[in-house]
Design a protein around this nucleic acid. Structure first.
Length: 578
DNA sequence: GCCGTTTTCGGCCCGACTGTTTTCAGTCG
């Protein structure tokens, strides 16, 4: 069975081989776009392949790519790709991932000096064999050597939960630099992506050199990659790349749009600008006079100061950053997305009874401090013995303890619940009689997370159909940058959740973010309810909610469809089924 | 390779920084 991820990887491979071979760059971009489309889509491409025209209907996938997908689904191979693989040493592809080394460089290293992978590159750098290639000076070779070392030390794509605090700290530091008028982080971080390649910081300043100097001298910097009048890139001791861009305050809005991206979204915007007789860049929206670089020719932009103005001049409403992925955000009416302040309940939290560090009372107070009206105590069930899951006897005691604690906090609605393991065959981890005593059941998969899709779906659907279950917790069990978890048939999951009035959780812990953004979009399209829960284990874990909200917003989530935003009575009625 | 209320062919976003190039190519985002 060909998963979307498999197919996406094949098209990535197509693109990278063609790139090294020096094929038409637009063809390369087209294949990369197909790879992204496959990765982001909720439907199963292999299933769509059976329906005539279904693949071709997807933006970015044309007749040629559709045929390749069908060929792979039917034969398990793509003849054209097999042929290409013969033409390029497989080890060259990994060199493409090294920052600063591109396809042209790789091609020359290969053809002129027989470099075939990282190992031969390193060896030939050491022996000096690479000298004398046309266009390769001493500095360039030195940069290649450093890039290779940096790639080995690089943290790769880091999780949202790691990147956001780094960015906020840099923003705070830059705000104190004399001459600085405004600072913001941009890039995929501002879009709330689950992993971040590098941190982009924008800075409006009357004294850019000072801003760059301060930025370069931050204590955690181990290497300055580039530094010019408007751009400095550095690497921190933890292997994270941070880029600083300085710009005039007057163009802050245009720059914020430009550097927030995504790339595809920007391309769409610029195409739109062209069709309206404009030229859009990071300095503003200009009347197009057919010549490049209007900002260098003393031409004033039509608009540039704020994002709202630029969008408006392009005939568009302001688009929330989380939606800027070229997934229809410029073409269709956007909903009012959920906001952090909309959350009024935490429905998945652990205490010392299982593997949390807070007492029941501490958890209630933490929820109260967030302005919530409801908190659910949902410790682990017995099969999660690694998490000190509760035996039926302990759970009965715990329910009593929760009720007693609830009496001490009369303004809060405190629910006695459980995060019940969904066992390997879909049965729940407690008897129905005991489940019936709970105010809320969050059913979650914790073990056997490598099941085939069909088996996993049967398991999850059985849990959804159980009359006690109200929330399906972290449905896939994936760990961002860790394990892929269950390969869900999201459409099927969403349909079942809707039918049985079960909310699908967006687990806000940045390690999980499960459901992920594209799954949330599918849930929104399919009419299911969602829940944003912090899965609190430690003090301050309720602060993780923002990552769940970002993920929800990326999936076009509205407050109305998220049960955590409902008022106390509505939530209570929903929990008391029927 | 993809796409189309100007196009089924001819486009396909735009600028900064670096190195080695005396006018630009490669790379990045």
């Amino acid at each position: 069975m060909a998963s979307n991820a498999d197919l996406s990887a094949l098209f990535e491979e197509f693109a990278s081989i063609l790139e090294i071979l020096g094929a038409n760059k637009f063809k390369v971009i087209a294949f990369q776009k197909v790879a992204r489309a496959l990765d982001a889509m909720a439907d199963d491409a292999a299933t769509l392949a059976a329906t005539k025209g279904a693949l071709e209907a997807i933006e970015g996938i044309g007749a040629s790519s559709a045929a390749k997908i069908r060929e792979y689904v039917e034969t398990g191979t793509i003849a054209e790709l097999d042929e290409l693989r013969f033409q390029v040493p497989p080890g060259l592809r990994e060199l493409l991932g090294i920052s600063g080394i591109g396809p042209k460089t790789i091609s020359l290293l290969w053809k002129e000096r027989g470099v075939t992978d990282k190992t031969t590159l390193k060896a030939k750098l050491a022996t000096g064999e690479l000298a004398g290639i046309k266009g390769f000076g001493e500095k360039k070779l030195q940069n290649i050597a450093e890039a290779l070392t940096l790639a080995e030390q690089s943290a790769g794509r880091i999780r949202l939960g790691a990147a956001l605090p780094i960015a906020e700290a840099v923003v705070e530091r830059m705000e104190r630099v004399p001459g600085v008028q405004r600072v913001a982080y941009a890039g995929s971080l501002r879009r709330g992506k689950e992993t971040i390649g590098d941190v982009d910081i924008l800075c409006a300043s009357s004294d850019p050199p000072s801003a760059h100097a301060v930025f370069r001298s931050m204590p955690e910097i181990v290497k300055v990659l580039v530094s010019g009048d408007t751009k400095t890139s550095v690497i921190t001791s933890r292997g994270v790349q941070i880029d600083l861009r300085t710009l005039p305050l007057a163009s802050f809005g245009a720059a914020l749009m430009y550097f927030t991206g995504s790339k595809e979204h920007n391309v769409r915007l610029r195409e739109r600008a062209i069709s309206m007789g404009y030229r859009l860049n990071e300095y503003g929206l200009f009347v197009d006079d057919g010549k490049e670089g209007p900002q260098h020719r003393g031409i004033e932009p039509v608009v540039s100061a704020t994002e709202e103005e630029v969008f408006a001049k392009l005939g568009l409403p302001w688009v929330p950053p989380e939606l800027r992925e070229d997934r229809g955000e410029l073409a269709q009416a956007m909903p009012k997305l959920i906001e952090l302040g909309d959350l009024k309940a935490e429905l998945h939290a652990h205490t010392r009874a299982s593997d949390g560090s807070m007492t029941i009372d501490e958890l209630i107070l933490a929820a109260q401090a967030k302005g919530f009206h409801t908190v659910a105590i949902t410790d682990h069930s017995k099969s999660s013995f690694q998490a000190n899951g509760l035996s039926p006897e302990r759970l009965r005691e715990h329910i009593k303890a929760v009720h007693e604690a609830a009496a001490r906090h009369p303004t809060m609605t405190v629910l006695a619940g459980s995060e019940v393991d969904i066992l390997i065959d879909g049965r729940l981890d407690y008897e129905d009689e005991l489940l019936g005593k709970l105010d809320i059941v969050v059913a979650s998969p914790h073990a056997s997370l490598r099941q085939e899709t069909a088996v996993a779906m049967k398991r999850l659907l059985k849990a959804i159909e159980h009359p006690s279950v109200r929330i399906l917790g972290h449905p896939s069990g994936r760990i961002v940058n860790g394990r892929s978890g269950l390969d869900l048939d999201v459409r099927e999951l969403v349909a079942a959740a809707k039918e049985h009035d079960v909310a699908l959780e967006i687990n806000a812990n940045p390690l999980r973010l499960d459901l992920r953004d594209s799954h949330v979009k599918a849930a929104m399209e399919g009419g299911a309810l969602l829940a944003i829960n912090c899965d609190s284990h430690e003090r301050d874990n309720l602060d993780l909610a923002r990552y769940g909200v970002l993920t929800g917003r990326r999936g076009w989530l509205t407050a109305e469809r998220c049960v955590n935003t409902w008022d106390r009575e509505r939530l209570r009625r929903w929990l008391k089924r029927g």
